[in-house]
């Protein structure tokens, strides 16, 4: 088991290096920081633009390979270059990753739990009405853009606040700046700001997960061991939760892990609409600014997260599925 994991890790480290290098080359080839600088109004002088590009290691007259080697030699030491703003990209990445993590953690956990519960309800097949409702709800959530979902949430929260006459919900940023209060107050303040984004993210996750889980559960429900358990007198619910779920969840684990990983870097819409300044927003803004180093730093982060998620899902599958433990 340990040997397998070790070999996999080594393989993934190579994969990581290749992916990150390709990402840098793609960003450096596709983005045009010179054009962005020259399009500023008033237009900066030629010498100023040249000096800036040289400092950013983004001069399109330097061969791509040379730029890549400069970047890579820094990257292995943890120096990801400087953003167009002249800030170290690694520092900004750390800050943004923290924000994304705080925004998504609760949402992802809640979403997974909710997804599992809905999947079970759907597969239990007790009431076709509930089953249909769950399926329809899931598809609706998947079909509606995050911005709309968030706005509906805001309107509902506003209505609830108006009804109760207090301000329970807040939906702009991580906390309200410039408001005094102790650490306890600060925690409550952050919690208040988390409710709506968490719900928005959780609903999306839950909808995907429930859909897949319902499918795999139904397949498992026909398996011989399940029928045997039912024949021995166990209730259907007990069989599903105690025996079938463990098997049915195996194919869903990698899906969920990779889904969460991509979410960590790709929740741009949620971030924008709730004014959190995380990774997704950073990617979009950096592409707009032609910021090669920032985009490359983002890709490093995404590659690490996806690889990490792969490892975690392997571990989880190994724990769930005795056949993988050789």
């Amino acid at each position: 088991m340990a040997g397998v994991l070790l070999r996999r890790s080594a393989g993934q480290a190579v994969l990581l290096a290749v992916a990150v290098s390709l990402a840098y080359l793609l960003a450096a080839a596709a983005l045009d920081p010179r054009a962005e600088l020259e399009a500023r109004n008033p237009r900066p002088s030629h010498a100023v633009v040249e000096a800036r590009l040289a400092r950013l290691n983004a001069d399109d007259r330097t061969p791509l390979v040379v730029r890549y080697l400069t970047w890579a030699s820094g990257a292995v030491r943890g120096d990801l270059g400087r953003t167009v703003d002249d800030t170290p990209a690694a520092e900004e990445m750390g800050r943004r990753a923290g924000v994304s993590l705080r925004l998504l953690l609760a949402g992802v956990l809640l979403g997974n739990a909710l997804g599992a519960a809905l999947g079970l309800v759907g597969a239990a097949g007790r009431s076709p009405v509930i089953e249909r409702l769950a399926a329809a709800g899931g598809f609706t959530v998947l079909a509606v853009p995050v911005v709309v979902l968030a706005t509906v949430g805001e309107i509902a929260a506003q209505w609830a606040d108006a009804r109760t006459g207090t301000r329970i919900f807040a939906w702009t940023g991580e906390y309200t700046p410039g408001r005094p209060g102790g650490s306890l107050h600060a925690i409550a303040e952050r919690g208040r700001h988390l409710v709506l984004p968490t719900l928005t993210i959780a609903l999306g996750r839950a909808a995907v997960l429930a859909h897949y889980l319902r499918g795999t559960l139904r397949d498992t429900a026909d398996a011989a061991f399940v029928r045997a358990a039912v024949a021995k007198g166990l209730t259907r619910r007990r069989v599903l939760t105690r025996h079938a779920l463990r098997v049915a969840v195996i194919p869903v684990v990698p899906l969920s892990a990779y889904g969460c990983a991509t979410l960590l870097g790709g929740a741009a819409c949620t971030e924008k609409v709730f004014a959190w300044h995380g990774m997704g927003e950073w990617l979009i803004d950096s592409i707009h600014r032609g910021d090669v180093n920032a985009v490359a730093a983002y890709c490093c982060f995404a590659a690490i997260v996806v690889t990490g998620a792969g490892l975690l899902s392997d571990l989880a599958v190994a724990a769930l599925d005795p056949r993988t433990r050789t």
Partner: peptide, 9 residues
Amino acid sequence: LARDAMPGA
């Protein structure tokens, strides 16, 4: 704030 977030804020 992103422009989309302003009216809600």
